[in-house]
C-alpha cells in the first residue's frame, strides 16, 4: 500500500541550528501516529513541513501522491491537510460560525447554506452546538481548541495534523479536547499528532515516534515503547514524562 504521507531523508536548518537531520517516515491511510520527544527535538518542525508551513532544505515529502517541493499549487495540497495549533489561532474577528464557514466559502467555494450546515454538524460533533454565534474570546481554551478542530474538519481533509493541541490548555480542559481527537481517531481519520499526552498515545496511536536532536530515535507500537524499549534515550525521556 502507498503511504499517504511519505517523508524521505528531510533536512531543515534554522541558521546555525540543524533542526531536522535526515528524517524519514511513512504514514498510511487511517493511521494515527504520535510524535513525542523533548522540546527542541524537531517534532513540531517536522509536522509543519508536512503542509509546508515550514520549507525544508533537503529531502523529499510526498503527500497524497503529490511531491511537495514540486507542487504547483501548495494551497490545493493544504486543503487536504487539516492543522490544529497549540495556540488555537482562531480568527478573533469572526464568530465561531464565521471561523468554520470562511475557508469552506473562499477555498472550497461552497454555498453559504451548505457551509453552515457542515459547520453546525461539526459543532455538534465536537460538543458545542450552542456556541455558533459566540466570539472566540468568549470561549474557554478547551472550547476554542474544539472549534479549531471543527474548523479544520470542515474542509473534509484526508489528513489531520495536531501540533501540541493540549499544551496551552488548563488541566481540566485537556480531556474534552482529547476525547474529540480520540473519537476522530476511532472514525478512521489519518492523524499525525505531536503531543506529550501519553494516555492519548496509548489509547489512539498505532505507532509512536520518538524524536531527539532532529532525528527519529525510536519507532514502535505504544505497548512496546512503554513496556520494553531497550533504547536508553527513550527510557530517559519516558521516565521524565511519566513522572509528571
Amino acid at each position: 500500500m502507498e503511504p499517504i504521507i511519505h517523508i524521505e531523508n528531510v533536512h531543515k536548518r534554522f541558521g546555525e541550528v540543524h533542526a531536522l537531520r535526515g528524517v524519514s517516515l511513512d504514514v498510511y491511510m487511517g493511521e494515527v501516529v504520535v510524535i513525542i520527544g523533548p522540546s527542541g527535538s524537531g517534532k513540531s518542525t517536522l509536522l509543519r513541513c508536512i503542509n509546508r508551513l515550514e520549507e525544508y532544505d533537503d529531502g523529499r515529502i510526498v503527500v497524497d501522491s503529490i511531491p511537495l517541493d514540486s507542487a504547483q499549487d501548495i494551497n490545493a495540497v493544504r486543503q487536504e491537510i487539516g492543522m490544529v495549533f497549540q495556540s488555537f489561532n482562531l480568527f478573533d474577528h469572526l464568530t465561531v460560525m464565521g471561523n468554520l464557514v470562511l475557508a469552506q466559502r473562499v477555498v472550497r467555494k461552497r454555498s453559504s447554506d451548505e457551509a453552515q450546515r457542515v459547520a453546525l454538524d461539526l459543532l455538534g460533533k465536537v460538543g458545542i452546538p450552542d456556541k455558533a454565534n459566540a466570539y472566540p474570546i468568549q470561549l474557554s481554551g478547551g472550547q476554542q481548541q474544539r472549534v479549531a478542530i471543527a474548523r479544520a474538519l470542515a474542509m473534509n481533509p484526508k489528513i489531520m495534523l495536531f501540533d501540541e493541541p493540549t499544551s496551552a490548555l488548563d488541566p481540566e480542559m485537556i480531556k474534552e479536547v482529547l476525547d474529540v481527537m480520540l473519537a476522530l481517531a476511532n472514525d478512521g481519520m489519518t492523524m499525525v499528532v505531536v503531543s506529550h499526552e501519553m494516555g492519548f498515545a496509548r489509547a489512539a496511536a498505532k505507532r509512536i515516534i520518538l524524536m531527539d536532536e532532529g532525528q527519529i530515535i525510536e519507532e514502535a507500537t505504544p505497548e512496546k515503547l512503554f513496556t520494553s524499549s531497550s533504547n536508553e534515550r527513550t527510557q530517559r525521556f519516558l521516565s521524565k514524562v511519566l513522572q509528571q
Binding site: 495549533f85 489561532n89 474548523r151 479544520a152
Partner: peptide, 29 residues
C-alpha cells in the same frame, strides 16, 4: 500574530485570501 496567517494558509487560503479575509479586518481595528 503570525498564527493567524498560518491558520488561514493551512486551510488552503492563498496569500491574498488570507490578507483579505483574516489579516486586514483585524489590522483595521
Amino acid at each position: 500574530p503570525k498564527g493567524q496567517t498560518e491558520a488561514s494558509r493551512s486551510l488552503g487560503m492563498t496569500r491574498f485570501q488570507s490578507m483579505r479575509h483574516v489579516i486586514l479586518p483585524q489590522a483595521i481595528r
